[in-house]
Nucleic acid binder design. Sequence first.
DNA 1: TAGACGATAGCCT
DNA 2: GGCTATCGTCTAA
Length: 211
Amino acid sequence: MSSPLPRDFYRQPTLTVARALLGKTLIRRFDDGVTATVRIVETEAYTTDDPACHAYKGQTARNRSMFGPPGHAYVYLIYGMYWCLNAVTAEEGTAEAALIRAVEPVENAARMWRNYVGEAVSDAALSDDVDMAARDDKRIGAGPGRLTKALAIARALDGADLTNAESRLFIAEGKEIAEEDVVTTTRIGITRAADFPWRFYVRSSRWVSRR
DNA sequence: TAGACGATAGCCT
DNA sequence: GGCTATCGTCTAA
C-alpha cells in the first residue's frame, strides 16, 4: 500500500491543494480492519477570507478542526443528514480546507455499496458480482454526502490525521491528472461568493457529481 | 431558548 | 426544473 502524502503537501496554497488532490488516493480502514480505496475526482477550496467558508466568522465548536494543523480531516454534518469530508490546509491558526466532492472506487466497491444501502447485506453476500455492479453505481462516490456514507465517514473521523498510514483515513499518491483534463468552475450549493471559480474536477471521470 | 439556515440528495412534475 | 426531509449549529434575545 502506498504511503501517505507528507504534511507539507497541505501547506501549499489551498487552491493549489484542491487542484493537486485530483487523482490522489484516499484509503479508509473500517472498524473491522477491512479497507476501501478510492480516487479523488472532484474538490472545492474554502479559505479564511472566503465568505462561503464555515470559518469566515471565526472559530466555533464545529469548525475547530479547520483551525488546527494541516493534513487533518474536517468532517461536518450538513442539512441534518449528510456528512462532508474536507482536508485541512494552511498553518495551524489559519482555517482553510479542501472539500472532497466526488471519488471513484478503486478497491472494495462492494463494501462501499453495502455501507451506502445499509446493513441488510451480510459480509458473505459481498461477492465479486456485487463488487462489479457497485463499480457502476454512482451513489457510492459521486457527491460529498454520498462518498462519506459509502466510506462510513462521520463525526468520529473529524480531526483524523490524513498523513498517518495507521490512521483510519489517509491520502496517498495516485494518478497524475493532466492539466487539460482538469475543469475549473464555480462551487456548488453556496449562496455567498458563489462566483468564485474554486471547484475542480476531472473531465474524463464518470464520477463527477455535476457537470 | 427560539428561530433561521445550511459546502445535499432523492423524489416529484 | 421544483420541493423538502432532517437536525446540528449559530445568532439574537
